[in-house]
Design a protein around this nucleic acid. Structure first.
Length: 271
DNA sequence: AGTGCGGCCTGTCCGC
DNA sequence: TGCGGACAGGCCGCAC
């Protein structure tokens, strides 16, 4: 489900309900996610106050008095606030039960998501440590992309989906950004000019910013912390539009698998 | 070091 | 209406 805009939408939705609130307990109905949910989660979190709801790439970082709860939504995960007493569905795997009568509930049918716990600086966690810059900061720009692309023969789409290069760009927004930038997704990363990478970096920032403003993209079941869908789906120009006319030139949008992921592009506008 | 895959899961959709 | 197979928003860990 979620790329950076969907995770950010989730973060903004839940933050007001959880920050400054004490955790009473955790209910774990299914431990087997991407990695096992830590043993003793409820015992360790009971009494902890949530002090922050941050995001790094696609990871949500819930800071508490002594820990950070690291949450990843994988392919099909969503988080929402429910009141105590709302019955869990079959894929509602974890609840954080809060002192204000609300629960933060993780639903994840495919179980590619994760709930982890660390006592240390979360930025040093193995899953976080090697992430590239946040795409919406100044650390991410065309010069950075151009430098990291040097010598790479893989497709540029694979480059911008590599979380070590830039954090949080997934399959939807990679296709969208390349469409906006007029670059073919299959073009070899090492053979693109600095000038074009500057355009691409701008396109990544633009598409992610606009998607956040629209509350993310709901393809199947993405919902924000209140259970509402996002509206960026209606603004997708390439992703999922194979065979439909390009908004610029009317040529049929093409699709092709690159790096095991489906890619969508205009064979005329993108070079 | 960079690249390409298998694998982890369930739900949905499509063609027969 | 049922069934098999392909596919889906991620990404680690491994072999080469």
């Amino acid at each position: 489900m979620p790329e950076l805009p969907e995770v950010e939408t989730t973060r903004r939705g839940i933050a007001p309900h959880i920050t400054g609130v004490i955790i009473r307990a955790a209910v774990v109905r299914q431990r087997r996610l991407r990695w096992p949910v830590p043993a003793g989660l409820s015992r360790r979190l009971a009494g902890q106050v949530i002090t922050a709801a941050d995001r790094r790439g696609k990871y949500l970082l819930l800071g508490t008095s002594d820990f950070t709860v690291i949450i990843h939504l994988g392919m099909s995960g969503s988080l929402r606030m429910v009141t105590d007493g709302v019955m869990p569905g079959p894929h509602d795997h974890v609840d954080l039960c809060l002192g204000n009568g609300l629960r933060l509930r993780l639903r994840d049918p495919r179980r590619f998501g994760a709930v982890l716990l660390t006592r240390r600086d979360p930025m040093l966690h193995p899953l976080i440590r090697n992430l590239g810059p946040e795409p919406l900061t100044d650390a991410f720009d065309g010069a950075w992309l151009h430098r990291r692309a040097a010598g790479r023969r893989a497709p540029v789409k694979s480059l911008i989906m590599d979380s070590r290069i830039v954090a949080g760009v997934g399959n939807i927004y990679a296709s969208e950004a390349l469409f906006l930038a007029g670059i073919l997704p299959a073009r070899r990363a090492g053979r693109i000019s600095l000038k074009r990478y500057e355009v691409l970096a701008g396109a990544v920032k633009r598409v992610l910013t606009e998607a956040i403003e629209q509350g993310g993209t709901s393809l199947r079941d993405f919902v924000n912390g209140s259970g509402e869908p996002g509206y960026f789906l209606q603004r997708l120009l390439a992703y999922g539009r194979a065979g439909e006319p390009c908004v610029n030139c009317k040529t049929a949008i093409a699709q092709r698998v690159l790096g095991q992921r489906m890619s969508y592009y205009c064979p005329r506008c993108q070079r």
